[in-house]
């Protein structure tokens, strides 16, 4: 097969951990399947991004600088990546399975008529891949047909590449085949928080419907979140009920996390939620319903009224 091309997701001139993880997965793929690893940085201005990318130790960093690449538009980025893929003889293209990665990867797959698999959790020596289906109730081993393949990798399933490398950097000049009616960026509202990023946090405290309302997330759950220096998460039920924003959702259709410590508070533990946190190292469940399915995955379960147990725990930790 050809080389392994890795998409370098970036924001505010920085590379998130997801990019280091995509490089980690790309290196594993190259080791097993052959080829060089080529990390592609695309933006309207590359600036220091290339040097940061070079630290991740891919065989080579390639950059594409073009005003149309501002704002990570999926259509233009996919169009540009298609040209990069041809220029560097990419046999496998790797994305982190973030919202951005999942917007671009399938579009690129259709453009290149490449086979694709999303949310890959394993790369096998025989070139097959492993991916979860049915909210993680099944893990499929899949074969991707053809000479060019595209995967997005689940960020909890691979180790990030160390930042001790120094790849050579090459600026590519690429004619981007512009889409007819490209989507336009209007504005962005980022969730402001001093807490760790949910998908990168070492500790996560997540709340469910048991919290009963938005105010209790603030007054009961957040003090524990902050006492632990944790990120806050939530079940889909809590998001559905409007207690917290959707970007805190952990589960099948939200974020997938695997922190060292995950504390589920007032979460019953539907399979859709477990799909997003089951790989956490230590899971704690606090729920007053002893029959709640969350206890089946918990290392430590406390059957208790969360409105008493959580403040008590906060007080004893702080």
């Amino acid at each position: 097969m050809g080389n392994v091309l890795i998409f370098a997701e970036h924001a505010h001139g920085e590379l998130p951990k997801a990019t280091a993880i995509a490089v980690g997965a790309g290196k594993e793929a190259a080791q097993k399947l052959g080829g060089d690893t080529i990390l592609a940085v695309l933006n309207n201005t590359i600036g220091g991004l290339a040097e940061r990318a070079a630290k991740l130790g891919a065989t080579k960093v390639v950059t594409v600088e073009n005003p149309a690449l501002e704002h990570n538009m999926a259509d233009v980025t996919a169009a540009a990546l298609g040209e990069v893929a041809k220029a560097v003889d990419a046999g496998l293209i790797v994305f982190a399975a973030t919202t951005l990665g999942k917007e671009i990867a399938p579009r690129l797959a259709a453009a290149l008529e490449a086979a694709t698999a999303s949310d890959v959790t394993g790369i096998n020596d025989d070139g097959t891949f492993v991916r979860p289906m049915y909210a993680g109730s099944a893990f499929a081993t899949v074969e991707l047909k053809g000479d060019r393949k595209i995967i997005s990798v689940r960020t909890t399933a691979f180790e990030p590449a160390a930042e001790d490398g120094s790849s050579p950097i090459e600026a590519l000049s690429v004619d981007i085949p512009m889409p007819g009616n490209p989507a336009e960026f209007v504005s962005q509202a980022e969730t402001k928080s001093d807490r760790p990023v949910l998908t990168e946090a070492n500790r996560v405290v997540a709340g469910g419907r048991g919290l009963k309302n938005a105010e209790n997330f603030t007054t009961v759950l957040e003090p524990l979140v902050d006492a632990l220096g944790a990120a806050m998460g939530a079940s889909r039920a809590a998001v559905d009920a409007g207690y917290v924003p959707n970007d805190l959702q952990v589960g099948q259709t939200g974020k997938v996390v695997a922190p060292a410590l995950y504390i589920a508070v007032g979460i019953s533990g539907a399979i859709q939620h477990l799909a997003g946190m089951k790989d956490s190292k230590v899971i704690v469940a606090i729920n007053k319903d002893a029959e709640a399915p969350i206890f089946s995955v918990a290392d430590y379960g406390l059957v208790a009224d969360l409105f008493e147990a959580v403040p008590e725990m906060t007080g004893k930790i702080a």
Binding site: S137, K145, M313
Partner: peptide, 30 residues
């Protein structure tokens, strides 16, 4: 199809955990 499912397996099971009786016991265990 370009993606062929060769086989399917159930998810790896988690080792059984245990119930704790109190917040103190929980903090101690953690």
């Amino acid at each position: 199809p370009k993606i062929i499912i060769k086989s399917m397996a159930p998810p790896p099971a988690r080792a059984a955990g245990r119930l704790v009786e109190s917040v103190d016991e929980l903090i101690n265990a953690l």
